[in-house]
Write a protein that binds this DNA or RNA. Structure first.
Lengths: 224, 224
DNA sequence: CGCGAAGTTGACACGCCTCAACTGCAGTGG
DNA sequence: CCACTGCAGTTGAGGCGTGTCAACTTCGCG
């Protein structure tokens, strides 16, 4: 990690969490944030880390994962440009068993818990914004994990591909991550994932055109 | 469901969510809550229900479950006396794919979303309380599901038994729910659960004494 | 070119789900 | 009071998906 000088870009004002605040308040917060660059693979925080802070992703991609009692690691979700994370740690304190690492080179604005708490006293309305932010994340996490809990790897993979197609607004796209990472995200291992890609190809649901491009052969994207 | 007269018991003031509010505010909210009794098996809300409201469980036991795309139902958690639920629906609107049913006869205080939103405008600090409440639930849910995602049924069952022993503060206890429900909670089916109970008995980890009582044979409860 | 990681493919075993039959128990009604 | 019914729970047989282990190929990079 490498601490950077204050960015001309203002992470704060672009965030829904703070967008309602008056200008002078924004200026105060700006002085309290750290702007930090992380190299690929670097850990932003992990289980033993107790320095609680809010993350505003300015550039790059982060991965949030969880390691359960038997030692297996499960990817929960990714953070991309503009995403916020760590809202819970602001109010509860440290997050248990959650790890955050940079997937690629990333630049992040960080706000420490203490600074945030004093802010909430001056600006009580921010609590509601925070609640909204957390609630949205919870719903996201909930539906993600519901998919993991039920259904086969094939089901999960297909659902992921459909979702990706929807996001990119195209039936032909590249995977947003490596297959190894995708396996961890889908709660499986590369070997099994590979077989399921083959399955879908044999069923003519996808075709694997040149250079890792995925083509979905579905007339109607019927996601719930 | 059966609407009851206003309870002499005040759900509101006992809830952390509202405990900070002044008395006159508490009185106002009290007029807006509904006090309702649900029979066992009755649905409090489900996927298609869009009447968003906060639930304060006064008596009884409720079950929150989720049905994923392939039709399988997964129990997420239970609500007991004093528990709150539906915080997310207050601010986001309806919760997707989540169902709530009464396990036994239950009495619940309900606050409608609209009423709550006007409340937050008068009392902005309540937003932070709400955020805390949601964040805590999110952590709970997160660790619960992490256990589901990894490890065998046997692991999950044993962990559940240990947790239950810890809660009841005794190595000898009755299951807090039927084995059928426990199966759904552990993400499996009764048949598989039954076999795993047998496994644990053969390993002398538990003994199934008279009348459904479980006895854990562990010198040290070594939960992480 | 050579190294290491990513990805693929095969053999294999095991856990879990499916289906099904059977038992035990509680509630119901004749 | 005792069949009848229905549901919870158990047990068995069987099959499929998935994790494990291992060998091999492919790819990217110094």
């Amino acid at each position: 990690m490498r601490k950077l000088t204050h960015p001309n870009h203002n992470c704060i004002s672009e965030t829904v969490l703070f967008s309602q605040l008056p200008q002078d308040e924004l200026n105060m917060i700006s002085k309290q944030i750290n702007y930090i660059e992380y190299a690929p693979g670097e850990t932003i925080f992990d289980v033993e880390d107790d320095s609680d802070r809010l993350l505003l992703v300015h550039q790059g991609k982060l991965k949030i994962s969880q390691t359960s009692s038997n030692g297996k690691e499960q990817t929960l979700y990714f953070l991309n440009e503009g995403d916020i994370d760590g809202e819970e740690s602001l109010i509860i304190g440290s997050r248990h068993a959650v790890t955050c690492v940079a997937v690629i080179k990333s630049r992040i604005c960080e706000i420490r818990r203490g600074d945030f708490l004093t802010l909430t006293k001056r600006q009580p309305t921010i609590g509601l914004s925070l609640a909204i932010s957390i609630a949205e994340k919870m719903q996201k996490l909930q539906t993600q994990q519901a998919n993991l809990l039920t259904g086969s790897v094939e089901d999960r993979l297909l659902k992921f591909l459909k979702d990706t197609a929807e996001e990119t607004d195209s039936l032909s796209f590249e995977l947003p991550m490596s297959k190894k990472e995708l396996a961890a995200y889908l709660g499986t291992i590369p070997a099994t994932l590979s077989r399921n890609f083959t399955k879908l190809e044999e069923k003519r649901i996808i075709s694997n055109s040149s250079k890792g491009k995925i083509v979905l052969n579905i007339t109607k994207i019927d996601n719930p």
